[in-house]
Simulated scan of single mutants.
Amino acid sequence: MTDDTPAGRSPSRRTLLKAGLGAAALPFASPAVHAAARDVKISMQRSSVLFTVLKVKGTLAERLAPLGFTPTWHLFTSVIEPMNAGAVDIHADVADAVPIFTQSARAPLTFFARERGSPAAEAIIVPADSPIRTVGDLKGRTVGVSRGSGSHYVLAAALKRAGLSFDDIRPAYLQAPEGAAAFEQGSLDAWSIWDPFLAFAEAKRPVRAIANGTGLTSYHRYYLVNDSFVAAHPKVVATVYQALVEAGQWVKANPEAAVALLTPVWGDLPPAVVAAANARRTYQVEPVERAQLGEQQAIADTFLEAKLIPRRIDATDVRIWTPPAVKG
């Protein structure tokens, strides 16, 4: 999945660096810590709202200090490669489609949390004055999408439901920022995208959604950790899990404060855009249960049919860490 700054309003590099949202893989500034503390490397992407809250408020640094750890924050525009390579310890929350690619690559990753589904936070949009009224009208059209993202699955599933495939359209594989620019410039007939880019596009110009995740995917977001890290440091993972739960509760209980916190970090987007994106996400963090991974199999099967992964996988055959409080 890929996330970066939406196009349209372009903050300067200085502004981005100040906000901690610079180029791909640019680490966030980290607080000074005792030399004996070990770093726990955490990846982030644009839509990693709860990790952003924990970073800006300093909550996770405070919680991990007694365990001898300090968080370092690493922003990526594409998360699949660092997840496959184990480049960080704890990985950004990712759309439901992303673990299919990491599992296919046999990446040594463990699921440790998920954010309950928000299907309306992904959509296929067209300009409001477009003659395209349905997904079936996408035949022969240029459709922007980020390869490997949750929106990639939404597009694949929507096409399949309409009796079409990727062979029937002209897919334009673009990172989200490039997709935003191409859509704004009229280079795309349609764009399959997620929040906050979806909310920004809706605010930038009149658009119409011809489909969203409803009926196609629940759009759960998953949090993963390297196998070796969770085996060696389960208390750190438990601390991160609980902090994520509380951050999600805070965002929903304090929507105006959450908007105020996120607006400057997201490059001073209009507050209404941030509020719209937050309203569509549940931010309800919960344990991962194997019995609830059936939808992951549907995603895997769709990607195999579309030749996006090389082999069939059992999407439920993954490693899962369960928080101590909910273990039987």
Results as ranks from 00 to 15, higher is better:
residue 4 D to K: 01
residue 9 R to N: 14
residue 13 R to A: 14
residue 21 L to A: 08
residue 24 A to W: 01
residue 27 P to A: 15
residue 31 P to S: 14
residue 34 H to C: 06
residue 38 R to K: 14
residue 41 K to D: 13
residue 46 R to L: 14
residue 50 L to P: 06
residue 52 T to R: 07
residue 60 L to V: 04
residue 60 L to S: 05
residue 61 A to T: 08
residue 62 E to D: 14
residue 66 P to L: 13
residue 71 P to N: 02
residue 77 T to E: 14
residue 81 E to T: 08
residue 83 M to W: 01
residue 99 P to V: 01
residue 101 F to R: 06
residue 101 F to I: 08
residue 102 T to E: 10
residue 103 Q to I: 03
residue 105 A to R: 07
residue 108 P to D: 09
residue 108 P to A: 09
residue 112 F to Y: 15
residue 116 R to Q: 05
residue 123 A to V: 04
residue 132 I to G: 07
residue 133 R to C: 03
residue 145 V to G: 05
residue 149 S to M: 05
residue 152 H to K: 04
residue 153 Y to H: 15
residue 154 V to L: 15
residue 160 K to H: 11
residue 160 K to W: 09
residue 162 A to E: 07
residue 164 L to Y: 10
residue 165 S to E: 08
residue 167 D to N: 11
residue 172 A to K: 11
residue 184 E to D: 11
residue 191 W to C: 04
residue 191 W to M: 11
residue 194 W to Q: 09
residue 198 L to R: 04
residue 200 F to Q: 13
residue 201 A to Q: 14
residue 203 A to N: 15
residue 206 P to G: 08
residue 211 A to E: 04
residue 217 T to P: 00
residue 217 T to M: 12
residue 221 R to I: 07
residue 222 Y to R: 03
residue 245 V to D: 05
residue 247 A to Q: 10
residue 249 Q to I: 00
residue 250 W to K: 00
residue 251 V to D: 00
residue 262 L to W: 03
residue 264 P to A: 14
residue 265 V to H: 00
residue 266 W to E: 08
residue 268 D to C: 05
residue 268 D to K: 13
residue 271 P to I: 07
residue 275 A to L: 13
residue 276 A to P: 01
residue 276 A to K: 13
residue 277 A to R: 06
residue 279 A to P: 13
residue 279 A to N: 14
residue 280 R to D: 03
residue 284 Q to F: 12
residue 287 P to N: 11
residue 295 E to W: 02
residue 301 D to G: 11
residue 316 T to M: 11
residue 316 T to C: 06
residue 318 V to Q: 15
residue 321 W to T: 11
residue 322 T to I: 15
residue 327 K to A: 15
